[in-house]
């Protein structure tokens, strides 16, 4: 797609709204569904990777130091990472804070 979705007019659409570009689901910002976001406390983190394994969105990644963080463009704020993190290194905070 040449334009972001929010700028496309009805005239810009392909026949039958066909999508011609592969993999453009990555442009879809699911992050704006979120009401709470995960905060990672690296002092408690033991780098076990459970948050990474359980994240249904696949948006948690590991940085060079081995700690984890969520890509907030995609994170829907489901809180599964915080629930599964047994050292309690992840807490969910409301978006407005």
């Amino acid at each position: 797609m040449t334009k972001p979705e929010g700028e496309l007019t009805w005239r810009d659409l392909e026949i039958g709204s066909i999508v011609t570009e592969a993999g453009n689901a990555s442009q879809y910002q699911t992050g704006d569904w979120r009401s709470e976001r995960p905060i990672f406390d690296n002092n408690k983190c033991i780098k076990c990777g459970l948050c990474y394994i359980f994240c249904p969105e696949g948006c948690i990644g590991q940085n060079a130091e081995g700690y984890f963080d969520a890509d907030l463009f995609y994170c829907k704020g489901c809180g599964i990472c915080a629930r599964e993190c047994w050292p309690k290194a992840i807490s969910m905070v409301p978006e407005e804070e």
Binding site: E5, L8, L13, S17, I18, V19, A22, Y28
Partner: peptide, 15 residues
């Protein structure tokens, strides 16, 4: 090509 893809609120009205 993808036919009958997901059409979120931002694009449905245009379709």
């Amino acid at each position: 090509v993808t036919m009958g893809a997901f059409g979120p609120p931002i694009i449905y009205a245009e379709t």
